[in-house]
């Protein structure tokens, strides 16, 4: 269980989150929606202990992580795997070594086994041909997919965090990534996905959280999201579900 207990956070004078309380189970499939700069990435960073809240507590499986150092947070962080919005590949290592980074440290696999595993994961995100390229030689979408592959390399995390995994991808690849995310969550591993694209979100998640002005504007199922008449949310939903009687039933019905 991930619990944010009345968490406030600001960057200097800029308040990003105000008294946010939410709890998310490790098996849940959650999407965080919200406009640009509303603090979605900030929430993920808080959960991982990369940032410390100004007020409030963050509990991961009952353990209070607020204000702890990197050494103490190690076990907590190993429960997660994150795909950063920027990809954040190690730019001095090639694609293969990027994906193999954790395998080398945390498993005793031989070089051949690692290579085989890396190829397998890269194939699942459709970039196996890039295995020997350096990060600077990748296109934006390939970069994103390699960083997803890297996050998937270890099978130990209990929960995946995706920060806009489909932004900047063509529809076919975005669809593949969504399917991959859905597949990975089949064996009880949950995820938190941050995105602007309601259409992608609806394909994968059960629970939707909408952030606005540093607070949770909405927290509920896909059907509720589509039926919501909160103006801020309607704008987001209009993309998949223009105002009209049937659309919400049809879209939300698939998943609820």
């Amino acid at each position: 269980m991930i619990v944010l207990d009345r968490v406030s956070f600001s960057y200097g004078a800029r308040r990003v989150l105000r008294d946010v309380s939410v709890s998310i189970g490790f098996g849940e499939r959650v999407v965080i929606l919200g406009g640009s700069g509303e603090g979605k990435t900030t929430i993920l960073r808080l959960i991982l202990g990369l940032l410390s809240p100004d007020a409030g507590r963050i509990l991961i499986e009952g353990e209070d992580i607020t204000g702890k150092g990197d050494g103490a947070l190690r076990d907590v962080r190993m429960k997660f795997s994150i795909v950063f919005q920027e990809g954040a590949l190690f730019d001095s290592l090639d694609v293969k070594e990027n994906v193999a980074y954790c395998l080398r440290e945390y498993t005793s696999m031989s070089d051949e086994e690692i290579e085989a595993r890396v190829r397998e994961i890269l194939a699942s995100v459709g970039v196996e041909q890039a295995i020997h390229l350096m990060p600077e030689e990748l296109s934006g979408g390939m970069h994103r997919r390699v960083s997803i592959a890297r996050a998937l390399a270890l099978s130990t995390p209990k929960m995946f965090l995706y920060d806009e995994p489909t932004t900047g991808l063509d529809p076919v690849n975005a669809d593949n990534i969504c399917r991959l995310i859905a597949d990975l969550s089949k064996d009880g591993k949950g995820f938190i996905m941050v995105t602007h694209k309601v259409s992608d979100a609806l394909k994968v998640a059960d629970r939707y959280i909408f952030l606005k002005d540093g607070a949770l504007l909405f927290d509920g199922t896909g059907r509720e999201l589509l039926h919501s008449d909160i103006p801020g949310i309607r704008v987001f939903v209009a993309e998949v579900c223009p105002p009209g009687p049937d659309c919400a039933e049809e879209q939300g019905g698939k998943h609820v």
């Binding site: 991982l48 990197d70 190690r74 962080r77 190993m78 950063f84 190690f90 730019d91 954790c102």
Partner: peptide, 20 residues
């Protein structure tokens, strides 16, 4: 410095390594 700006240091932390 480049690793910090490219979020690579954060990645190292998230992977469970102590960056120090």
């Amino acid at each position: 410095g480049t690793m910090v700006l490219g979020h690579q240091v954060d990645t190292i932390r998230v992977f469970g390594f102590d960056p120090v």
